[in-house]
Structures are given as structure tokens and as C-alpha cells.
Design a protein around this nucleic acid. Structure first.
Length: 527
RNA sequence: GAGCCUGUAGCUCAGUGGUAGAGCAUUCGACUUUUAAUCGAAUGGCCGUGGGUUCGACCCCCACCGGGCUCACCA
């Protein structure tokens, strides 16, 4: 293997170059990209990352070579159900199906023919939600349809060589019993991990013994009567489908090595592989679904647009990254900056937005205001409706609205949710003192009496500001600033706040009165 | 035991073989009938340590030290 020094600066293009070299060497004119899915879990943030990154390499490949390609999303749904997942109903029912292929286990959710089909549908819905272009493939279908038969017979012919490859990696107990071929028990339907007594290459069968009954069986390796242990399965798939590219997490480094050795034993060069680093939580621990640490896709999409998740996944896949709430605003602003830079970029291929949007920005992409700024603004004015934020936004971008700035509109939505969930709950509402109480009552009464009409010739916000200011003056505040401190701390629960007249104008007079009365009532209860 | 990532400003992190960068934090200033948002500026770094390659190294190579992860049953 001669690794040429790449002329491509961005990693998707560097990867695409490697794929192109492989195709050239093999004389192929179409590239097959694969992403694989374990059967155990539902789609998660790593799934998104893997498909997004693979899609970027694929797009770069197209751009580089002009050759056609496919992305196969392969579900290993023939794998046996090993343990009952925590997050599913009907656990009792599932107990009776342990060890069977997932596509033979009834759907605990009762929506599909099998648990495997359920997971497959979740996966496809998940990928479609992001607009990925892919072909779905079910391992069970491939096995049952005979599509793997030739490759399986090929594996059988190399059975001993494969055993020798895997054996050194196993502990002493497994070493004795290992075989890459797992027959499906003809009576119980369970995927059997048993020693293979004998291999009959000519007839395409294996002989094995049921450890419970001591019954001897002969099982065909073809047609779905048996499946392969996973590392051999991976290698067989590479061989059978002639996969050109597949990436995987660093936890699979050893598997990639072994599967590569196996596929070579089968006479096929392994695909171009990329190992990416895993995601860590804020404390540097590996993110795992069972621990529930880190961030879920749902959480990310609650607080920021999906494009920002792409931005996060784009940067340096081979570097470990912490994935927790604090990275969301930055990823979003990085994305916004990338979009802004793309139209005039000298090297667009180095711009994440080019990859995220498949080479072409959609109309009205990007935002004239950063997400961090919006979050600050939402916090300061305690925004709980989009219109409140738009009111302030228009002070800087006259006429801005959701139609002219659709992406900004999405950011506004997320900023409000972020404020509601993270900022608002932490607010500390102070009880008003004697003087403050009087002034606040005065404010509520004055607002009810519509007193700001006494200051004509100004905008409503200015009139309201005048009113607030006048109230502060006719109560013994020293200095006057403490009156405004009182408003922020007692009414909004924060140390600092917006210009209050403008706030009332946007928040609404009735609602402001209610806010004052709530604060006064709260302090009475506390006392 | 094997493998991988990582060490750059107070914090979180970018970075290219050619004079060290951003955001936040800090300080100052501008705007504001009080603030805040915002805008402008400043402060701040033997780029982990020691060698090597090079005209030149934060970058490439080696060693060491520190931080962390993954695999060592299953997938």
C-alpha cells in the first residue's frame, strides 16, 4: 500500500481520493459506500455522524471523479437477540425469544412483524428525517434470498483459515469452540454458537451438536439456514457486495483488522476504512446509551437546527470531541459563519457548509445574527414568544421576519426553548423591599390607568420608558439605578435586563401588570 | 497487555513548514434619560519537556512526562 501525499485539504476529499484510487486499481466504475448498524439499539447521535460523514465522502467522490456511487445502509437484523433492552415494553414476552434472529422476534411495540423490522423502520425514518440519500439493506433478506450464498460457500471453503485468523484474538474458552458459522437451530430457531464438528464444502453444510439434547445436525450455510459470526459476517459482506468504503468507531479497530484479514483470505481487498474517534461527555467519559450521558439527537435538535449538528460532525472526525450542551451554540455559530463565508470562499471544499449542503447552499441559508447573541438576547428580555425577539431584532434589521429570514426564524424558536429550559429555571426572584413594593404598586396602577398618554409625541416604548422613569423619581430611590435593579431582580429574576419601556411594549401592558402582581403576591406568601 | 486520541491565552478550543488565532472571561471606551444587548479597543502564550530533520518547526520524526479513551466476553 503506497499512501500518496494528498493534494486535498479537506478530509472528505482526501477520503474520496483513496476511494478513487481503489476503484482505479480494481477497474470499477461505481463505488459502494456502506454504513452498518448493530441490532441492539435505536438510532443515536453516532448513527447520524456516521451516515453524515459517509455521505460527505460520497459527495466528494462524485465531485472528484464524476462516477456513480451508492450508499448502502446495512442492518444486521439477523443477529440473535442477546438480552432484553431496557427501553422496550413486553419484556416478559421477549424472554421467550432470546437468541433468535431479531427478524424472528415479535415486535415488543406491536407495530411491525418483528423486532428487527421495527428497528429497521426506526432507522430509516431517522435517516430520512435528515434527508440522507441511501438504500436500506436487511441482512435477513440478503441471507434468506440467497444473495449471500456464493460468498457463504466461499467462506465455508476457507473455514479453517478464518478460524486461524480469529483464534489468536479469543480467550482460551472461546478459542476451542469458535467457528465463523452460526447455524440457526432448525427446531428452536436460535442462533447457535456451537463448535462445528465437521465442514462439508462440497455440499455446503456444517455438522454440529446441540449441547442440550446431544442431537447431531447437518445445516446448510446458505439460504438463511445459518449466519456468520459478526467479524466474519462483515468480511463476507465486503466480499459479496464488493464494498469500497466503510467507516467505524475506534472501538472497532480490532474488528476492522480481523475482518480485513478475513476478507483477504477470501481473496478480496478490504474497503477503504476510516476510523473515527468516539464522542465523550463533558467529563471525558464515553457516551453510551445505557449510561444516558452526553447528548441525544433529540436534545440537540430541540435546542439548535440540524445543520449545526452536521457542523459538529464535520470537524476532525479522527479527534475525540466532547459532546454536551455547551457545544451547541458554538457549533451553530460556526455553521452560520461557514455559510456566510461560502459564497466568496476561494476553496469552497474546505468549508463545512459546502459539505453539509451537498455543494450548494439552499435559498435563504444563514443568519445575519449569531445564535449566541440570540441566546443572550432571549435571556435578557426573558423572551417567551418569537415576536418578543423579533421586536428587538428589527431594531437592527428593519423589516426582518420569518419569511425574509427563515433560518433566523428557526434560531429564534430554538433560542426561546433554550431560554425556557436552561436559563429561566435558574432565575432568582428577589422579594421587593418597602420602597420597592410601593413603586411596583404604583407601576401597576399607572399601567392600568394608561398613564403613558401623558407623554405624547414618542413611540409607545419611549412613553413607557418615560413612565417607568417617572415612577422611579417619585419614590425615594437612591440612586435611581436601584429602581431598575429592582425591576430586573424582582420581576425578571435576573441581575441585569433590557430597557424596561421597550420590554413592556413587546411583552404587553396587560402581561406586565400581571408580572408585577405575581411578584408582589409571591413576596407576600414568602413573608 | 495491545491500540488510539490528546497537551496552544484564565476557560473552551481552532490553526498552517515561513512574524501565534477565535469565542468566553477580564479591563477600558462608544451608544443609551438607568441598565443590558450590541459595537470598538486593550490585556493576556518558552504552542507539555528534551533531542533530531530543515535556511526556518506549534506543525514532520524520535524519546520522555502528563491527561483521557478504546479493545482485550458479545456486537
Amino acid at each position: 500500500m503506497s499512501e500518496q501525499i494528498s493534494t486535498q485539504p479537506s478530509w472528505p476529499f482526501r477520503e474520496a481520493e483513496r476511494v478513487a484510487a481503489r476503484l482505479k486499481q480494481k477497474g470499477k466504475t461505481e463505488a459502494l459506500f456502506e454504513t452498518g448498524y448493530g441490532p441492539s439499539g435505536l438510532p443515536h447521535i453516532g448513527t447520524f455522524g456516521e451516515v453524515a460523514r459517509t455521505s460527505w465522502v460520497r459527495k466528494a467522490f462524485t465531485d472528484l471523479t464524476g462516477l456513480p456511487s451508492r450508499l448502502l445502509a446495512f442492518s444486521d437484523d439477523m443477529d440473535g437477540l442477546r438480552k432484553i433492552p431496557d427501553n422496550v415494553p413486553n419484556k416478559e414476552m421477549l424472554k421467550h425469544h432470546l437468541g433468535k434472529p431479531l427478524t424472528k422476534v415479535p415486535d415488543p411495540f406491536g407495530k411491525f412483524e418483528s423486532f428487527g423490522e421495527h428497528n429497521n423502520n426506526m432507522l430509516q425514518d431517522f435517516l430520512n428525517e435528515f434527508g440522507f440519500e441511501f438504500e436500506f439493506a436487511s441482512s435477513s433478506d440478503y441471507y434468506a434470498s440467497g444473495r449471500f450464498d456464493n460468498a457463504l460457500l466461499h467462506v465455508l471453503a476457507h473455514h479453517d483459515a478464518i478460524v486461524e485468523i480469529i483464534r489468536p484474538s479469543l480467550g482460551p474458552e472461546r478459542r476451542a469452540s469458535y467457528s465463523p458459522i452460526l447455524p440457526i437451530h432448525p427446531r428452536t430457531g436460535i442462533v447457535m454458537q456451537v463448535p462445528i464438528d465437521q465442514v462439508d464444502v462440497e455440499h455446503g453444510t456444517v455438522f454440529w451438536t446441540d449441547p442440550d439434547t446431544n442431537t447431531k445436525y447437518e445445516t446448510a450455510v446458505t439460504g438463511g439456514a445459518a449466519k456468520l459470526q459478526w467479524k466474519a459476517d462483515w468480511a463476507m459482506r465486503w466480499h459479496a457486495l464488493d464494498v469500497d468504503y466503510e467507516m467505524s468507531g475506534k472501538d472497532l479497530i480490532d474488528s476492522v483488522k480481523l475482518s480485513s484479514a478475513i476478507v483477504r483470505a477470501l481473496g478480496t481487498e478490504p474497503p477503504v476504512c476510516l476510523t473515527y474517534e468516539l464522542f465523550l461527555d463533558d467529563k471525558g467519559q464515553k457516551i453510551s446509551k445505557s449510561k444516558g450521558n452526553g447528548l441525544s439527537v433529540e436534545q440537540w435538535l430541540t435546542y439548535a437546527p440540524k445543520e449545526s449538528l452536521g457542523q459538529f460532525m464535520y470537524h476532525a472526525p479522527q479527534r475525540a470531541k466532547r459532546l454536551f450542551f455547551d457545544v451547541i451554540p458554538r457549533a451553530t455559530d460556526d455553521y452560520i459563519a461557514a455559510v456566510a463565508a461560502l459564497p466568496t470562499a476561494e476553496k469552497p471544499h474546505e468549508n463545512p457548509a459546502w459539505h453539509i449542503h451537498g455543494g450548494e447552499l439552499p435559498e435563504h441559508a444563514g443568519s445575519p445574527i449569531g445564535f449566541t447573541m440570540l441566546l443572550n438576547l432571549a435571556s435578557v428580555i426573558n423572551a417567551d414568544s418569537p415576536e418578543m425577539l423579533w421586536g428587538f431584532i428589527r431594531a437592527y434589521i428593519p423589516g426582518a421576519n420569518a419569511e425574509t429570514y427563515p433560518f433566523l426564524a428557526r434560531l429564534v424558536h430554538h433560542a426561546i426553548v433554550y431560554n425556557r429550559d436552561f436559563v429561566a429555571p435558574k432565575k432568582q426572584f428577589r422579594a421587593p423591599g418597602e420602597v420597592e413594593r410601593g413603586a411596583l404598586l404604583d407601576l401597576a396602577e399607572s399601567l392600568k390607568a394608561n398613564e403613558m398618554v401623558q407623554y405624547p409625541g414618542a413611540t409607545p416604548a419611549e412613553q413607557l420608558q418615560n413612565l417607568v422613569y417617572a415612577i422611579g423619581k417619585r419614590h425615594p430611590f437612591a440612586p435611581l439605578k436601584s429602581w431598575f435593579d429592582c425591576l430586573y431582580q424582582v420581576l425578571l429574576g435576573q441581575v441585569e435586563g433590557p430597557r424596561f419601556g421597550g420590554f413592556i411594549a413587546l411583552y404587553g401592558i396587560e402581561r406586565t401588570i400581571a408580572l408585577v402582581e405575581t411578584a408582589l403576591a409571591r413576596s407576600v406568601e414568602a413573608a
